[in-house]
Structure formats: C-alpha cells, structure tokens
Amino acid sequence: MKNGMKKTAAVVMAAMLMGTGAVVPAAEDMGIFSQTAIVAEAASVGKVTGLKSKTLSNSEIQLNWSKVKGASGYTVYMRKNGKYNKLGDCKGTSYTVKKLPNATRENFKVRAYKTVKGKKVYGKYSANWNTATNPQACKGLKVSSVGTDSVKLSWTKIGCTNYRIYQNIKGEWKEIGKTTGTSYTVKKLAPATKYQFKIRACKQDDKKTSNNHYGKYSGVVTATTKKSDKITQADIDAMKKELQEYSNSKAEYVNTRYTEFWKYGKDYNTLDEYYSMSIKSKSPSISSYDGVDTINFTEGQSMLKEFKELYKDYINYEYEKRNDVYYVVYVEACPNGLDVNPNPCWAVYLLY
C-alpha cells in the first residue's frame, strides 16, 4: 500500500513537471525512488536564454548563450528537414558548429540538462536562433567592356544573397552598388580616366533581418575609360582661344595703327592689353557681327578640327573684305534667341 502511494505521488509530480517542459525518463527504466529524485531535480533545470552566434567562416558558426545555474551541460540542436536534430553536448556556454555548407542559413536551439543518477534531465529549449555561414570569396572578376563614361564588370556565380561592388575613390574603398546577378555596369564615370574595382558576396540571415555575412574580397581589377569623342566645354574654350589668337594675328589695321590709338589717350598700354579689353567689352547684344556659325554639342572631335580650319578661312575672307575692323571671336550656347540652329549647340560669332 505504501509503495503504491509513493508510486502514485511520483507519477503525479512527473505529470505536473512535464507540463513545464522538463523531460523525465520513463518509470520502467528505474526504481520508483530514483524516479522521484530525478523528477525533483528536473524542476530546477532552467531554460537557456541569450542564444547568439558569430560566423567564423564560410563553414563554421560559433554559438554562445547565457549560463544556466546548476546545469551539468548543454545540448545543441540544428533544424533539418523541419526537425531539430541533435548536434552534440558541451559543458560550457559556447559551441562551434563545423563543416557547414557555405552561404547557407541555419537555425539552432539549445537546452540545458542535469545528470541525475546517470540520467540526463532537460530543461526547456531556448528560443530558436537564425544565422548563416559566409559565402566563398568571389572569383573571376573581370572588365567585360569599357565606354567613355562606364565600365561593365562580370564574375563567376557563387551561392549568396547578392554581390556588393566597391570602387577605390581617393584611396578609400567605398561600396557603390549591389546586384543579384553576375555583372554590374558602373556609370557616370569621367572619360579617359583610370578606375579600380573589387567585389564580395553577401549572405543575409533571412528575409526579415538585415544581418549580413560577407565573403572575402575578390582581386582588384583596373579599367581606363575611353576618350570621349564628344565636344566638351573645355574643347570649345580651347577652340575659341585658338581662333581669337588667329584673328589677332590677322588684324593688320589694329596692329599697324596701335600707336595712333595710344596717342588719343585710350586706357591701354600694350597691344595685348588692347586685345584683352576689346574681348571683354564685346557681346552680340552691343556689337555688330559678320555672320554666325554653329557647332553641335554631340559632334565629334574630327568635326571640331574641321570647323576650326573652315572658320580660319572665314576670318581671312572677312579681313580681306573689311580690313579696317578688328574681329572678336565670341561663343555662346544655342539657341538663346538664335534661330539658325534649334538643336543643342554652340554659336560662334565674329564680332566687330
């Protein structure tokens, strides 16, 4: 009778504690007194908290958690095919999972246990923890094509969430973009300029977090953008200077009568000063001009060279026709009231 009462009390206690998550060995595996002792011990096995991780490489993850008072050890589990499978036991609060596939998301749980009469009595599972291994280092990075203002990069596909692209800007590597594909075009670059790039793969823990795990950087590639054939403002400024100097050399009337201008008290002391002041004081709004020519923004360098030669011939012709004038070469953007060319262009005036 007494033994029956003890057995009943132990079973009731076991049932109550199992509702708390404690795991109790089966009654048939031990005597009733041993079972009662184990059930009592199970009540004091705490739940593991503070589970975190550190990704060590593309195949290793280190798990860490808070110590459970009185625990004999801990068992680590990893989810596979929808179930948590045991990985191993440890005495401390750290466990390194090895030989994992690279760039894969993994899910873990840990629970503490006490060893009582040679048997493990477990506490509740910790909350699950998601993390991922690092991707491999990116390989095969190369420059696929080069334009005047762009560089296309490509590389070999590896397992990851996305790829991050980096550019060396004034000696510092900065992330400039990301893609899920295996190519990326860097745009808005300057023509005839050298650039350096590298990439690395990124793996995110899961879709709901922003925790990123990175592979090692690829090698560095260098690309030099092509020289632009388009006419720039700098090209126009150089052309204007060249044509103005040519006009000055052809201004025989001014060159031979400069001393006469000086006698009448003009505000200049040298011929160069006179030319400089004349250029600054003239514009189409206050001056007359012998014709106007235009050149489009998008016309190439060969067209610019041809334009300069033709315009020099035009200057020669005008000086022969009107040798008592001095011409100022003036350039402004089209159309600005100029009807001869409605397209984006420069208008070149020969003012007098």
Rank of each mutant, 00 (worst) to 15 (best):
G4W: 11
G4E: 14
T8V: 10
M13G: 03
A14N: 06
M16V: 13
L17F: 06
M18T: 06
T20I: 02
T20Q: 11
A22D: 05
V24R: 06
M30V: 12
M30W: 06
M30Y: 08
M30L: 12
S44D: 09
K47C: 04
V48S: 06
G50C: 05
S59W: 04
I61S: 05
I61K: 02
Q62K: 15
W65A: 08
S72W: 05
T75I: 11
Y77F: 15
M78Y: 09
M78Q: 15
M78C: 11
R79D: 12
N81Q: 15
K83H: 14
K86S: 15
C90Y: 06
G92R: 13
T93H: 03
T93Y: 03
S94D: 08
L100W: 02
L100S: 03
P101R: 05
K114C: 05
K114I: 08
V116W: 02
K119H: 10
K120E: 09
V121L: 02
V121M: 03
Y122G: 02
Y122N: 01
K124T: 04
K124H: 00
N128V: 03
N128C: 01
N134T: 02
P135N: 02
A137Q: 15
K139W: 02
L141E: 07
V143M: 06
V143D: 05
S145A: 14
G147F: 01
G147C: 00
T148E: 09
D149T: 12
S150H: 00
S150M: 00
L153H: 02
Y166K: 01
S183L: 01
Y184H: 10
K187E: 13
I199R: 08
A201F: 07
N211Y: 09
H213Q: 12
H213S: 07
G215F: 10
Y217F: 15
S218A: 12
S218M: 08
T222E: 12
T222V: 08
T222K: 07
A223T: 03
A223C: 05
T225I: 03
S228L: 02
I231V: 14
T232V: 03
A234W: 01
D237N: 14
D237T: 10
A238M: 03
M239A: 10
Y246W: 07
K250I: 01
Y253W: 15
F261E: 09
F261V: 00
G265R: 05
N269I: 00
T270E: 04
D272L: 02
D272Y: 06
Y275S: 03
Y275D: 00
V292H: 09
I295P: 11
Q301L: 14
K305R: 14
F307Q: 07
E309H: 05
I315T: 07
Y317H: 08
E320P: 01
N323K: 14
D324P: 02
V328P: 07
V328E: 10
V331W: 11
N336H: 14
G337W: 12
V340I: 15
N341R: 13
L350Y: 08
L351Q: 08
L351N: 07
